[in-house]
Design a protein around this nucleic acid. Sequence first.
DNA 1: AAGAAGTCCTGGGCGC
DNA 2: TGCGCCCAGGACTTCT
Length: 282
Amino acid sequence: MPELPEVETVRRDLYRLVAGATVTRVRVLCPGMLRGGTPAALQRSLRGATIVQVARRGKVLILRFSSGWSLLVHFRMTGQLYPVGVGEPLPAHTRTVLELADGRRLAHVDVRKLGTVELVRTDCESAAVSLAAVGRDALCDPPTPQGLEQLLARRRCPIKAFLLDQRALAGIGNIYASEILARAGIAPDTPCHGLTAAQIRALLVAMRQVLTAAVQAGGTTISNYRTGAGTVGGYQTQLRVYGRHGKACRKRGCPGVVERMVQGQRSTFVCPVCQARSADTD
DNA sequence: AAGAAGTCCTGGGCGC
DNA sequence: TGCGCCCAGGACTTCT
């Protein structure tokens, strides 16, 4: 479940490992995952081109090529992207392969095929389908407390649902939404418009702290996330609530036991002590 | 118009 | 041992 810290880790690894590499051939093994393009168009646009930049917006990874084309990769649940060494076999569930001039292959692996790959001209990136509903980046371009307050005042949905909505704030998924709310001490089902100014400031601080620490740790590996170097992340050992139902809250001195609840068909993990609903938010 | 619910997809875990 | 069921959840579509 790659979210912002995982995609950022992949971005940094790929920049280090494949920037400057030249594509000699593109193999599309699962055409159904392509968005707005054909295997032939990928071949025409990327063959002979050099990877010049690796960027990210929200959870979307952007490979920019010297030919003036960009490849937008969304990992959804199980996507991975990493170079495979010369002579090594392609991993199971490889969906797209960029063969490189030095013999390595940049493999796009996705067990569940929920991810997407979109070819778009670099000068028209903002018009891409993959970026159409992507708002400002939660890590690199967060709103001010006043700006967030204005956004939240208009929304009546639970704050957890707001954090998962990529149109407002891009990059946060189910794991980090739980973690950010735990750190901020906010109950996930608090209606957006019921948050106090102090809670909104705490939310922004928690968001920055959690996302920054997760990027530093190389992301969270719960099931099959891999970094751009093919290794596992390290943030799973620092998770405060996610996946820890029945275990003690990790906040120092807190006697709470983490609970699991279902909200919008998604698991949410919460410490009932740190994240107690205040009486006036109902 | 906003929010809720359904859909896609497949490996792994679980119960019988 | 093996079968079948259900779960994981990001984003899109459809419904209310």
